[in-house]
Simulated scan of single mutants.
Amino acid sequence: MTDPESADAPQGGAKQNAPNPTLARRMLLDRLRKIVRRSPLSPEEIARKVGLDPSTINRWLNGRKKHLRPHDVRGLLVACGLGLDDPTVEELVALAERAGRPGVLGVTQPWMEKLRFDFYVGLEADAVHLVDYEIAIVPGLLQTPAYAEAVIRATEGDISHQDLASRIMVRLKRQALLKCPNEPLRLTAIIDENVLRRGPADRFIMRTQLEYLVGVAQWPNVDVLVIPYRVGLHVGVETGAFVLMEFAGDDAGPVAYSETPTQAVYVEDVEGVGRYRTVTERLLGCALGCTESLDMIGQAAETLRDDE
């Protein structure tokens, strides 16, 4: 799965005691907060232009108001200096109309594509547990810089040195979630054996990546589990790569994420997430245990060492 990322990704944990947000609402609030933060006006000046108390605006942006009406969003954006004919106004008003209806959010329109990477990385930063199933590449949170570069070059084709360096830097910053001293992100990485067998043409890059996997899989918050070839066909062959995110408390439900070459798909409704959980259970049933998985990864690394 292509790894979504952006140098302008939001940070921070989920808001406590806020209404359970839909994905569209999360995306809307994230974008509004950025616009307000970048406005030359102070929050108090923005509130005066809207004709409301600053505390009301703060409740909007902190997610305390369950439903942001389209005209509320339009008024806030105009107060921040955007014209009514600004495409951003139309875009976010459309998100406000979509917010409040849980289900499947497909990021397909060009204007939503701009938010896609920021939004994914923001969700990832808020999560407490990720299940990442990959059928072809090492999960982004576990990639070495050299392996990440090889993957980006292979998937993106012609990419500038500046964009390449930025993508690698953001990927490495994301990995810091696994190393937080207080509450590190828990990661369950389920990978097909194919991930171990197909890698960059440079065998040294692949070997060092596999050796890194062996090391990080021994962290208390990381599990790396391999589905061996001998299992044959399994449910993941049909579903493809996906990420299942779990969040703390009752303020945000779980989210499943997958993507195709043309869109990113976020699933948050109970039935849809339930299906991904069932798939995850079936994948775990196919995978080797932690010790056996580490042995297989280590053996694959040794094979590459012998061939160098």
Rank of each mutant, 00 (worst) to 15 (best):
D163M: 01
L196D: 04
V170F: 07
A165K: 12
T155Q: 14
N194V: 14
N182M: 13
R186Y: 12
I168T: 09
L196M: 06
I191G: 09
Y147N: 03
A146P: 03
R186Q: 15
I159H: 00
A150F: 03
L177T: 04
R186T: 14
A150W: 03
L178W: 03
I152K: 00
R167C: 05
D192G: 03
L185V: 12
V195I: 11
A148D: 07
L178D: 02
P184C: 09
S160F: 05
L177I: 06
V170A: 15
A176Q: 13
K179R: 13
L172E: 14
I191S: 10
D192E: 12
A189Q: 02
I191A: 08
G157R: 02
T188L: 13
E183G: 11
E149G: 00
T188G: 00
R167W: 07
A150S: 15
L187K: 10
S160Y: 04
L164E: 08
A165I: 02
I191D: 12
G157K: 03
L164S: 07
D163H: 01
V195W: 14
S160V: 06
N194C: 13
I168L: 11
A165L: 04
L185F: 10
S160A: 08
A189G: 02
N194I: 11
D192W: 04
S166L: 13
A189S: 07
S160G: 09
A146M: 11
R171E: 09
Q162K: 13
L187I: 05
D192Q: 03
P181N: 06
R171Q: 14
D163W: 00
A150K: 08
L185G: 12
I168K: 08
I190Y: 09
V170W: 08
I159Y: 01
